[in-house]
Design a protein around this nucleic acid. Structure first.
Lengths: 345, 345
DNA sequence: TAGGTATGAACAAACGATTGTTCAAGATCA
DNA sequence: TGATCTTGAACAATCGTTTGTTCATACCTA
């Protein structure tokens, strides 16, 4: 049984066995200021440490250094592929830098409690915050935080650190692609009217139209939120128009739109092309498989964690980092428009 | 600016302001052994603590009590809805009990490191472990753990604590439903041949057939793993048979099967009914919307966290807890077979 | 050879809580 | 009134590190 060996060995035990002081052991094991230690002593200590399978007690270290080497991430939803990707990215970077990731799901209801709890109890050194809340709500939540934080895909006027996706460019690219297929009447299934990202996407959509000399028609734009059911509802408006293609703000609303159209008897993609921003496995699972502009959400998580860690290390990084959209992924949901447009249904 | 107030107040500061000893403050704030404290003193301390917005320093407490009040959860994938649901459940229960949840994504590659790292550094009091690894790999990983752990939807002979879903009953129920629709030739799109859960599902499938006096036909069973592409491949076998319905092990493989059949020109659900185990939002996004037997994965997370916490509190709970499957959710992917079966394609 | 500088390691003070023990003063009793 | 018991709170040790300071020894230099 090696059980005994696995039990936590303390610095004191290593010190005793190596017949030196704990401080010496600590210095050797930390690897810093090696100058002041005889090679022979160092070796002896290293040997004993290995034999005892010594691991620094994380808690003691955290107390002494008043740093927990833990990052918290607060997300509104855990099952949204966008957030899980961000979490994965953040976790990777955190781990790579010796940090752990504390996850905290926060229902839009319980304002602030999570952020406050994590940061005020000194559980985390910093916070990664993704929120769907309105600006004021988020702002007042963050006021409770007594640690540095980075916002995910969100911008809040002020000095807050943020990592944002370039929704505008992504929207532009998606729209541009539809145009390149020959579509002239392109609907936009957008996000919440007030939201920053919704505006950005709309702007990108307009840019693409403009570049192609297509007049912007407000009746082709419907705003909802980012849910499946909102997608279904919104698309009913577009179905009444002569749109031949839809650029959707996100995967799930695109899925809603396709489901609804199909139920109404439309042939997809022949009668309506659909493209969405963001990409995930299930874009491929839809029928027709959904064309998308991939958004680097995992990288957003990585970059945010990086930013936070560098901030924690004393750096003073750029407050806002924008990530370019990823590549266009053409699947089966986008085709050239048929010569004769469908009249209505 | 209330900034100053928000800075971490220590026990000593509260004690000083209330003109008592730290130990007294601690006792009052812990709420234990209240007997030995004058009501008046207690009140004064409480008042000061509130004024100073005192929060116990989590790290100091952890060191002193040698408990971190943190649970670790190790998952193989972060974007799989099954795991995110489990995480959500675990996080809820953890939070409710004053624990935090440390998340750790563990690629099937880096054997053991994660578990060892978390537990040997005293970062967590216990571990929730979800793994797709083979038994021996998992077992050797766990040998490194020097904290209690609970396995998620996995059983490992021995005394390990587990929470498992009743895959057998779920499979039975799904199959039973297909039979009730009139299907007699039912295919099963299963999981990894060696896996415990795969066996269970197969057993449930057989039970339902038997109960309906339908002979078991091995050629109607194909095993793969739980991915989209595996679903596509496996279903080709079934397409060659006279099966009129498929009971799939999980959502994504069902989605793969549907995608493949459709590409091959099948009419769904008329020519092939499909039902899957597990439920998530995207079952509704598929076309036709996928019928499922819901599996309580979120509850699995909750129960597992509960189990772990009770174990940490000194209880000696049942090693294996089985959760009954949830209800049958009938959507559009399952219909009665047509009188004349499709011959082939 | 005496005085000064490196060198290597021990000493000791935190970090901020929890908790067993001690102790002064007031209450109780004979 | 003196001895004993309660009560309320202070004292003090401890958890396992990190890190500034002290200190003995050996080494130089003059």
């Amino acid at each position: 049984m090696t059980k005994k060996q696995r039990q936590k060995a303390t610095l004191a035990e290593v010190a005793a066995m190596a017949e030196v002081d704990v401080s010496t052991v600590s210095r050797v094991l930390r690897g810093q200021s090696e100058q002041r230690i005889r090679a022979e002593t160092k070796e002896r200590i290293l040997e004993v440490a290995k034999k005892l399978n010594y691991r620094a007690n994380y808690t003691a270290r955290a107390l002494r250094m008043s740093r927990t080497f833990t990052l918290g991430i607060v997300v509104p939803q855990l099952d949204n592929p966008v957030f899980s990707a961000a979490i994965r990215g953040a976790e990777n970077v955190a781990a790579k830098n010796g940090y752990s990731l504390l996850i905290s799901h926060r229902d839009p209801g319980d304002a602030g409690t999570t952020i406050a709890k994590l940061s005020q109890m000194n559980r985390v050194d910093g916070l990664l915050v993704a929120s769907l809340d309105a600006d004021e709500v988020l702002r007042s939540d963050l006021a409770e935080a007594n640690v540095p934080y980075v916002l995910l895909n969100r911008q809040l006027p002020g000095t807050a650190l943020s990592v944002v996706l370039d929704s505008r460019e992504a929207a532009r690219r998606a729209t541009e692609y539809l145009i390149s297929l020959g579509h002239l009447r392109i609907g936009h299934l957008g996000g919440r009217p007030g939201g920053f990202n919704a505006q950005e996407r709309l702007a990108g959509y307009k840019m693409a139209l403009e570049a192609a000399d297509i007049a912007f028609d407000p009746s082709l734009v419907t705003m909802g939120d980012y849910t499946f059911s909102a997608g279904r509802e919104s698309v009913r408006e577009l179905a009444k128009t002569d749109a031949t293609a839809i650029m959707a703000a996100t995967l799930v609303s695109a899925a809603g739109a396709m489901a609804e159209l199909r139920l109404a008897g439309w042939q997809l993609p022949q009668e309506m092309s659909v493209i969405a921003l963001h990409d995930a496995l299930f874009a491929e699972m839809l029928f027709p498989a959904l064309s998308t502009v991939m958004m680097p959400t995992e990288e957003m998580g990585r970059v945010a964690a990086d930013l936070l860690i560098s901030k924690l290390s004393g750096a003073d990084p750029e407050p806002v980092l924008a990530l370019p959209p990823g590549r266009l992924i053409v699947r089966d949901s986008t085709v050239a428009p048929r010569s004769g447009a469908r009249t209505s249904k």
